[in-house]
Design a binder for these strands. Structure first.
Length: 232
DNA sequence: CGAGTTTGACCAGCGC
DNA sequence: GCGCTGGTCAAACTCG
């Protein structure tokens, strides 16, 4: 009976979590050449389900690439120090425990666990608020050479195929689910966000030797074409 | 050699 | 009181 009750509670939590999740996809019409832009943002703040105002726990669901998902790595722009790992009862994947590594006095804790239903989704639970300025944020986009110092509360990473852009959100504000969702929509629409996105894409393309090779060939061919017009 | 990670042990809370 | 579970500690280990 109690087992049945727990199962129902879990299912209810899952439904509530799915209901409050927010997804945005913008996929190009062409059938995915190497650098086609398929963009995916997954944000979930299921924390406010209970009426208790006390525990400041925010849950963020992030679709992660296999290496990150396996390592329980959620890129959110902050530095974290892992202090424990535990296998929990209702999930076959281990849960990792992190503390903020930037400031020893920072009370923020993070729990990261792969979603039992979809192993490519990481569920991160943030407890508490950072007590240091947000300027510690650095863009930790996996493709960038050096961290850019924009103040957007997220990190951007582009997967190895260039098809998926993952946003890691710090979800700094203490607002409700609705404000969080609206906040992301607004952030994506801002010129700052677009600027950072373009920079990360440029960085990605710069590091793509195949793209650079094609670009060089095309430019060379074009120059030769122009020059031959003049010479001949 | 220092910083970060891993992992088994320990502890506290909760239900029975 | 006992057992189960989640959370934390700390020694051992790894890596740059």
């Amino acid at each position: 009976m109690s087992e049945e009750s727990r199962r129902l509670t879990r299912e209810l939590d899952t439904i509530l979590a799915d209901r409050s999740s927010y997804q945005l996809r913008a996929t190009t019409a062409s059938p995915a050449p190497s650098n086609a832009a398929a963009m995916e943002v997954v944000l979930d703040t299921a924390a406010g389900v209970t009426a208790e105002p006390r525990p400041k726990v925010r849950t963020v669901r992030v679709r992660a690439e296999p290496p990150d998902a396996e390592a329980n790595v959620v890129k959110d722009g902050y530095q974290w120090r892992k202090y424990g790992q535990k296998v929990t009862r209702d999930n076959p994947y281990p849960r990792a425990y992190f503390r903020c590594a930037y400031a020893p006095s920072c009370p923020v804790k993070k729990k990261v666990q792969r979603c039992a239903e979809d192993s490519s989704v990481l569920v991160a639970q943030y407890e508490g608020e950072h007590n240091h300025a947000q300027s510690e944020f650095v863009s930790d986009a996996s493709t960038s050479q050096a961290g850019t110092s924009h103040s957007l509360p997220c990190s951007i990473s582009i997967d190895s195929l260039g098809r998926t852009i993952t946003l890691g959100l710090t979800n700094q504000g203490s607002g409700s689910n609705e404000t969080a969702v609206v906040g992301v929509a607004e952030m994506v629409a801002t010129p700052e966000f677009r600027k950072v996105l373009v920079e990360e894409m440029v960085n990605f393309l710069r590091n793509d030797s195949q793209f650079m090779e094609s670009l060089t060939t095309a430019v060379t061919a074009r120059m030769m074409e122009k020059n031959s017009d003049r010479i001949f």
